[in-house]
Nucleic acid binder design. Sequence first.
DNA 1: TCTTAGCACTCTCGGCGTGAGAGTGCTAAC
DNA 2: GTTAGCACTCTCACGCCGAGAGTGCTAAGA
Lengths: 362, 362
Amino acid sequence: MLSERKQKVLEAVVREYISTAEPVGSRTLFRRHNLGVSSATIRNEMADLEEMGYLEQPHTSAGRIPSDLGYRFYVDNLMQTDPLPKGEQELLRQVPASGITETDILLSQVSRLLSQVSNYISLVLGPRADRGVLRTLKLVPIEEHVAMAVLFTDRGKVESRVLVLPPQVEPEDLEGLARYFTRRLAGRPLEEITGELLGVLYAELLEDYRAKRARLGELAQALVNWLASGGRPVRIYTGGTQNILRQPEFQDLEKVRRLLALLEEEELLYKLLEREPGVTVTIGQENELPAVRECTVVTSTYCMDGEPVGVLAILGPTRMDYAHVISLLEYMADCLSEAFSNISARHAMVIQKTKTAAKKPV
Amino acid sequence: MLSERKQKVLEAVVREYISTAEPVGSRTLFRRHNLGVSSATIRNEMADLEEMGYLEQPHTSAGRIPSDLGYRFYVDNLMQTDPLPKGEQELLRQVPASGITETDILLSQVSRLLSQVSNYISLVLGPRADRGVLRTLKLVPIEEHVAMAVLFTDRGKVESRVLVLPPQVEPEDLEGLARYFTRRLAGRPLEEITGELLGVLYAELLEDYRAKRARLGELAQALVNWLASGGRPVRIYTGGTQNILRQPEFQDLEKVRRLLALLEEEELLYKLLEREPGVTVTIGQENELPAVRECTVVTSTYCMDGEPVGVLAILGPTRMDYAHVISLLEYMADCLSEAFSNISARHAMVIQKTKTAAKKPV
DNA sequence: TCTTAGCACTCTCGGCGTGAGAGTGCTAAC
DNA sequence: GTTAGCACTCTCACGCCGAGAGTGCTAAGA
């Protein structure tokens, strides 16, 4: 473990470097942070810290900068997070509070706010819809050749999609098909309803129907495809890409290019944002993706009905204002969770009333 | 009008500059393009062209580069577009042909391909849904307190959305409401159905219903909101942002920053992509947006059922491979138009998917 | 034994001058 | 009207130099 004084020095180096982006020397440390000892002593401590791997020297006779390990120690042991400034709190709160019900718009605003306030890149992973357990699949005829497929879960979530019917499909067929899928799939978590399972079902179904009406197969196929896609793909919102160009560590265009390329690779981003609930911080080399090995990714999950469904993230240089970013993400995640719960609560209220009313039909 | 020789010189300068990105001098022109005259003559012609505004000199004793006007003349009069190389054709065709029915995925692939093949930034404006004439609005009861609003146009296009019903709403109410909206709106182009018109309708409706059932107003309000949003907002897909970093004219980080900032401003992008049908080219200062005053934007529209509904665009430096980009966009637009027509013609495909998550308590 | 002052040493960075290279404009001859 | 020749200009890469910042080491002090 580090001696108290070493910790103080390390913290001072990290703080100084985060705010100035310049390698920090013993003299400046001596002047600006009153550590109670001379620059020479600080110098010795810094030499020790370097040997222990917490600091690095870009070149001899330059100051030191924190290593990934140094940042890690700082984040885990030294950093103290203050609550977000009131001004920023209000800025953030305004969005979820403004009653925007379109998730799409809401999340892109959130992304924009995050990048504005943090001055780094923001990433927002939309709420995944595949939680919950399938309750019913319905096929509702709408017009002559049009039906709508609707999917209910135990949480009342609904995905739906319009289907154009092949000729000669009759209402009974639709009903049969829906009953069949419901019977076979009800009670299963949505995430279990994968292509594999559906393949089996589809084969079975064809078996049944081949004799009767071949055209129905086409419809079933469309349904299977839809189900297999797990509802709507989860979108990722990015914002503030231009911010990294302001960071001195990204004057190297090649680095910027790699990062921009990453931001267009949805698959990689999904991987990057696959995080456990709460706040996580991965620093530099701790990241798996090569493109962000010189960056830090801070994430925070937000919830719907108490269950984590999406991720907010900030991507910036390892020289990042950790304390601020973490408070920011925590706060925003709370706002979002609350916003989603509000929506959900309002509906709940409405439905609650409906139920009582329904008991004694008017 | 320019003499034939001047035109040849101008063309040679543009071609040379496009491929090398270096100011071109009379001597290199003399060596690489055989214009049949000496470098001295070329020099004189270039001096003339500069005076006429077609060429510019970064500084005395450097070669010349084309001005915006020079590029304009080149595009309008000198450039000859070859058909797209077979290899690229195949690459582009594979996507719309691969039977992807999700517009979302299709268009993001298109965007990716465009930027890959062109090496510039690609922009894709999704198909606007507000063409066509409203035919019917239906409210289909689905479960006890859930209904689905479905909107049909003369082209068979459909938007739909799940609505959670207030209590005490009965099937007749739904029918009545739908009939009312249909009666008042049928035959109108979707783009005319704006908030203003709907406000009138809503007021009228409240008048009618107040006496009977206040709660119905809430439902009507939801409907009006939905209609006023003109269906789903049209998304813009971007790709290849990292490509501009490869362009020598974008070594200046400030320029890059402005461009990246622009790409996150959806409103501005809508404006940028508001184009007339067919191929358009705006060069440098011809652009209204300051952020792209040093860029060229080439656009091409794609169609559904013969009517332009969306835009493909390439954004790059004014020193752009115009001929290639134009062929590329034309070809891709054709592919897309065809893909969309196929979908609509076969009528076997899913047209639209609803994005909704209505909720209920467990 | 720990801390501190002093000092020589190292390394980067910006400014400056220089020369090569590329290109021009002008003039005079064809 | 075209071309060769030539003097001139401007940029850019290179190398040099000195200032500045910071280090490591040593020796003296607490």
